[in-house]
Simulated scan of single mutants.
Amino acid sequence: MPASATPPAGTPGHFALTVYLALSRTPHGILDLAGPFCAALLCRGGLPPLSVVVLGCVTVFAGYTAVYALNDIVDYRSDKRQVEKSGRDARCNYLDAAFIRHPLAHGCLSLPAAIAWFLCWVAVAFVGAYALNPVCAWLLVAGCLLETAYCLLLTVTHLRALINGVVKSLGPLAAAYAVSPDPAPWFLVLLFAWVFTWEIGGQNIPADWHDAVRDAVTGARTVPVVVGYRQASRLAVACLGASLAISAPLLAASPLAVAAPLWLVALLGGAWLLLPPALRLAATREDEAASALFNRASFYPALVLTVLVIELLVR
C-alpha cells in the first residue's frame, strides 16, 4: 500500500496505517460487516461452507473499506471547504471520528495515495464478489456508482439520503446472493426494507445532524438542514420503529426460521438499543443525542448477528 503524507499539526499520534483506517472508517466498517453476515445466515438457513465463509469475510471487509474510502475521495473538496470554514471537528464521542475524521481533507493523506488505497481494496472486493456470484460483483459496482452520486448531490438535494439507504442495503443483498443463487423475492424485499430503514433512521439522519451546523455554512443540503431538526428527529424515530417491526417477520419467516423466543430477544434488544436515544434526540434535539443515536444504532446489526449465532448453537 502507498505511504501516507505527514499528518498536519494538531493530529499527533496518527501514523500511516491509522490514517488509512480513518479514511475507510474502519471501526464503523467492522460493525457494518454484521449486516451481510446476518443476511447470509438468514438466507441460507445456516452456515455456508467454510470456503464461502472465508472468501465472504475478505470480500465484505474489502468492499466496505473501499466504499467508505470512496466517500471521502469524492467528498474531498466539500470536506476541505467545511474544514476551512468551520474548523476541525474536535468531538471524540462520535464513532466515525474514532481515529481522525476526514483525514484527506485535513491533509493527513494525499489524494493519489487515497485513490490507490481505494483501488486496491475495490479490486480485492470485485474479484472476491465475482468468485462468490457475479451478481455480487455487479452489486458492488452499483454501490460504488451510487455512493459517488450520493456525494455529488451534497449541495443539490436532501433526498440523496435515499441513495445512502440503498447503498447500505446492497451489502446484505449481495451476501444473500453469495450463499444462494436465487433468493426468494419476498426475503430480498424484507431484507432491503430492514436495512434501508435502519440506515436512514439510525445512521444517515444522526450523522448529518452531527454535521448540520457545518453543513449549513458550506451550502450542503441534508435532511436536518432542509426539513429542520424537529421533523428529522421524528423521521428517525419512525424509520427505526419500522426497521424493528420488519425484523420480526424477516427473522421468523427466513430460511433460518429463528425461534420465537430468540427473534423476540432481537426485537426487544433492538428496541432497547435504538429507541431510547432516538426518542431523546426527538425530545432534546441536541448534537450529543445525535452522536449517541449514531453510535448505538451502529451496534444493532451486531446484536442481531449475536442472536442468529445463538440460534445456530442451540439447534
Rank of each mutant, 00 (worst) to 15 (best):
I205C: 05
R221F: 09
P206C: 09
W209T: 05
S180T: 13
A175M: 03
V141A: 14
V167D: 01
L170H: 02
T197M: 12
A178F: 03
A176K: 03
V223S: 00
R234M: 15
T157M: 11
G202E: 05
V225M: 07
G143D: 05
R230L: 13
V167E: 04
V227P: 01
V141S: 10
V179L: 08
L188A: 07
R160T: 07
R160Q: 08
L153S: 07
A212I: 10
I205G: 00
L191P: 01
V189A: 14
E147F: 07
G165K: 00
Y177W: 15
D208N: 14
Q231P: 03
R214C: 10
L139G: 00
V217Y: 10
Y177E: 04
F192R: 08
Q203N: 12
F192M: 11
T148L: 08
L152V: 12
L153H: 06
V195N: 01
N164G: 15
A212V: 15
A193E: 08
W209Q: 00
L146T: 04
R160Y: 02
A174Y: 00
V167M: 07
G202L: 07
L170Y: 00
R230T: 15
L152A: 10
T222Q: 04
I205Q: 04
F196E: 01
V195M: 08
L162H: 01
L173P: 01
P185T: 13
F196V: 09
P185Y: 13
I200F: 05
V166A: 08
A184I: 07
D215Y: 06
G171S: 13
I163D: 00
